[in-house]
Every structure is written in C-alpha cells, then in structure tokens.
Write a protein that binds this DNA or RNA. Structure first.
Lengths: 138, 138
DNA sequence: GTATTTGCAAAGTTTTTGCACGTGG
DNA sequence: CCACGTGCAAAAACTTTGCAAATAC
C-alpha cells in the first residue's frame, strides 16, 4: 500500500476512487485551483462532483498529502506535498510562478521572524511582485 | 486641501462624502475587510452602499491612498497607506497581526529574490504562521 | 451643464451545507 | 452490516455590473 493510502487509513478515512483521482490531478497539474482539479478529473472520468473536490482537497490538505497557497488575489491553489516544501514568487504581470526551496526562504526570513518569536509556515508563503522579464519591459 | 484630496483631483476623480468616509474608516480600523469598512461607515451615517464601498476601496488602492493585504485565507483587508509600508505576520491560531517595517523585510528577502531577478511588493506580503504565545501553548 | 459617482437591484462567482443514496472495510 | 463518503440541489458568502437618479465642479 502506498504512502498516501496508509495515511488515509491511519487517520480513520476511507480509500475512495474520488480521493485517488483528486490526488492524481493535483500531482499532475502542479498548481491548481479547485475548479481546475475538477476539470482535470472530469477529463478522465465522470465519477466526481465539484463538492467532492472541495471536500477532498480540504481533507488531503489536513492530512498533509497536498498543500495550498494563494497565488492570486482570488483563488487558492493546491500542489503536491511530495517533493520539497517551497514558497512561491508570483509575477503580477505575466503570472509566472517561481518556486523557492524552503531552506532558502528559511535562512532569509529566519532572523527577521525570530525577532518577533514568530514561526512561519514557509510552504504557504507567497511573494507577489514583478519578475525579471516583466520588470525589464516596464 | 489635504494630500488625499489633491491626489483624487489630480487623477481626475471627484471628492465625495463617500470617499472621505471610506478613507476615514480604513484609517480608523487599521486592518479592515470591505464588510467591516461598510459597517464602520454605517455606524456614522446612512450615506453609503456596499457597492460603493467596494468601488471606493478599489479606487483608493489604485491611487495608493490605501493598501490591501490578505490576512486570512478568505478576505482581503485594507489599511492606510499613510505611515510606513509594512508587511504582515499573521498568527493562524490567535489571528494576531504583527507589522514589520519594509526595510526589515527588504533586507531579509532582498538577497533571496535578487537571485531570481524578482522585485517583490513588500507591502503586500503576508507571512502565516504561529506567534510566540501560541507556539508556547502548543 | 455635464461627466462622474452613487444607490439599488440583480446577477456572477466561488464555496459550503443538508440530506438521501451509495460504498468501502 | 453500517459508518463514512458522495452526488445533488439549494443556499450562503462575497463581489461585480447595468442603469437611472443624484451630485461634484
């Protein structure tokens, strides 16, 4: 049994096709809104409902199998929690997303937050701004 | 004529009681959602509508008279742009908001983002996590 | 006077909820 | 078997929009 399946069971939840489909979609899409996940699953199978996508994303997030960040002023986006934890730099102009490893962010922000006794959720961090390409054009 | 009034005029906009009331509410409340601004203005006067609050907040934000950040996973919050630009540390547990001066954030994050040629909007930055008090309890 | 702004009501978007049916263990 | 999960439909929360009336200048 794979890791995520074990994690579901251990926490008293069931292994359903919908949960498998949602997890697969999130892993495939990289950074996806609930709606995009729904569309991706639908492309493979009719066997899902939007409500279920929301409920499932919430559950997988709680279990730590996926994570979410806010890459626009509006919608949350989910991504796989496999691989390294990372923060995001989002370009307001071209919408490009740059991922930055947790270690890099931690070493940069660490001293600052330590002064306030604050323990950041580095993987949830999103920094908005302008990327090099767009700054050049402007 | 005060600074904000001048700024409105220069940009070809009109000085209305509603705009004055919204700006005053944002400055009084510190960090407020559109709904909270609406409620605050309503407490003083009937002379405003929720649509107008949304339109006015958007306008004042564009003009740089106020700024917004995302202090919860859900609602945007607006704050005065008078005073120094600052980022926010938000405690997920007790919802406390700690403001951090731009200079501090810039010196911490500067080297990191420079490696990606990225120019952050420091005043929009929100870092979620646990504050010292809540971390202690847990 | 007239272009901008507001109020109102309606619709749009995104997310949540209640409940009967279906299903994994 | 039966507690948990899903689909469906309806509602909730939040935000935007069209248009006629009001108003800043």
């Amino acid at each position: 049994m794979s890791d995520w399946q074990q994690r579901l069971r251990e926490s008293g939840h069931r292994l359903t096709p919908q949960r498998e489909l949602v997890l697969a979609a999130v892993e495939k899409l990289g950074h996806a809104t609930p709606d995009a996940v729904y569309a991706e699953v639908r492309a493979h199978s009719e066997a899902i409902n939007l409500s279920t996508v929301y409920r499932t994303l919430e559950l997988l997030d709680e279990l730590g199998l996926i994570r979410h960040a806010h890459l626009s002023d509006r919608a949350p986006t989910y991504h796989a929690a496999t691989g390294h934890e990372h923060a995001h730099l989002v370009c307001r102009s071209c919408k490009k997303v740059i991922s930055v490893g947790r270690a890099d962010v931690e070493s940069a922000l660490g001293p600052l937050v330590a002064r306030h006794g604050f323990a950041p959720d580095y993987g949830h961090l999103t920094v908005f701004g302008l990327c090099a390409d767009c700054a050049e054009q402007a």
